[in-house]
Design a protein around this nucleic acid. Structure first.
Lengths: 227, 227
DNA sequence: CGATTTAACCAATATATGATTGGTTAGGCA
DNA sequence: TGCCTAACCAATCATATATTGGTTAAATCG
């Protein structure tokens, strides 16, 4: 009953084998291809649908038709990730990844990097506004990630960090205020840097984990108080 | 001596405090702003340079002038990361991150996800080409990442994976060949999935670490042989 | 002469416009 | 009924235009 349809399919298969297109290659637009094969567009689309169902090619509006399996629907931009995520996930990911980065930093940090970390510590104690303090905090955490001596790990940290900034946290603290002298992060940050200076990987890992645990607890407390 | 220059600066400062612009806000183009303030563009630019040096704002051609600190030069696209990275870094990052994801998967994997993993295992054993096998391998590793029940961790895994694919590995194996029946990954993959099924987080972590260590060793051997 | 303004240009970026593509629908036609 | 055709749609790409910070050189003025 569907001789013509099958005919279009074999014509298409013949065309594909003849052209011997490599993976991810883009084949002509449907309007061209159906003219090349001398088939109606409807028949061609049926044949394409079969091959797509079989995973031999994939199509997308505005882009075209391509050889191979459809690329996974990976997130490409930060905003998209942030929208699908939430503060809990961000904190969870930080607790998993940043202690690991601290341990790597303890292995690979240069003297210059450690000196810059100590600059950060001093600057954060002198910060006169939360905004300024958070700049120092970000810089320190990124310095630690960078000390892993891996551009890839740094890039992953940057992604995580960008998502963290993009996720809606609600308003957490009065921006007019300033960090108190006994703020928990001061000592915790210094402990981390000290372990990195001592090349103590497990100490650095544990110190970072403890720090982020405290941050997480404070954060949850503020969020619950706001509800 | 530079009374006029200082004059432009105070005018600009006054404008900024008056407008009370939020962070990352974009202020008018220089050509407009110098007309608003009644200052020449040169003087305005001097004043802007001072504030930029002080970290109160940042500028970029084609974009504009913005309040706050210049955003870090974070990588935004995969290709950029891949170009700055290399196979060694990729393998290193995988060894740090994927065992962690396997442990998370052991905690959170659903029955459906575990079943899908086992499908993957079976399919990979039946793969008739390296290309097909690698599809199964990718799918399995991504399933494990997805079983962490964190869209953020999955997104980070996808980033790492995209970089892995984009990094130049050189040609590693003859694509015409197919994976041998005794390929090391078969057993290693099955061990990982078994630990996840048993909710054995540390077993899953160790199995994934062992698996990636083997992969890394094989890879280095091939690369050295090619030199 | 020296310092500034001004105007014009430059490269990078943003924005707008038109063309192209896969997907869909309605009418013509055998 | 079954199919083709043509037209349309939304998503995407490709191209052109406008805008922006940065730079330079002639004009202008004290």
């Amino acid at each position: 009953m569907d001789d013509e349809a099958e005919g279009a399919l074999v014509q298409l298969r013949a065309y594909l084998t003849q052209q011997d297109l490599p993976a991810n290659a883009r084949l002509p637009a449907e309007r061209e291809l159906c003219e090349i094969l001398g088939v109606s567009r409807g028949e061609l689309r049926k044949a394409l649908a079969v091959l797509e169902g079989h995973g031999e090619l994939w199509r997308h509006v505005g882009k075209g038709t391509f050889i191979g399996a459809r690329p996974g629907d990976e997130f490409d931009n930060i905003a998209e990730i942030a929208q699908a995520s939430n503060p809990r996930e961000v904190m969870h990911a930080r607790l998993l990844i940043e202690p690991m980065l601290a341990a790597e930093a303890a292995l690979g940090a240069s003297a210059a990097e450690i000196a810059e970390m100590r600059d950060c510590l001093a600057a954060s104690r002198q910060a006169r506004t939360w905004r300024h303090y958070e700049n120092c905090d970000n810089r320190l955490h990124r310095l630690i990630a960078g000390a892993s001596r891996s551009t890839l790990l740094l890039a992953l940290f940057d992604t995580l960090n960008a998502v963290r900034r993009a996720v809606v946290w609600g308003r957490l603290r009065d921006t007019a205020d300033r960090p108190p002298a006994g703020h928990h992060s001061f000592l915790e940050h210094e402990r981390i840097v000290q372990h990195i200076t001592d090349r103590d990987t497990e100490g650095a890992r544990a110190a970072m984990h403890a720090h982020l645990t405290t941050v997480s607890r404070k954060l949850l407390a503020v969020r619950q108080a706001a509800e």
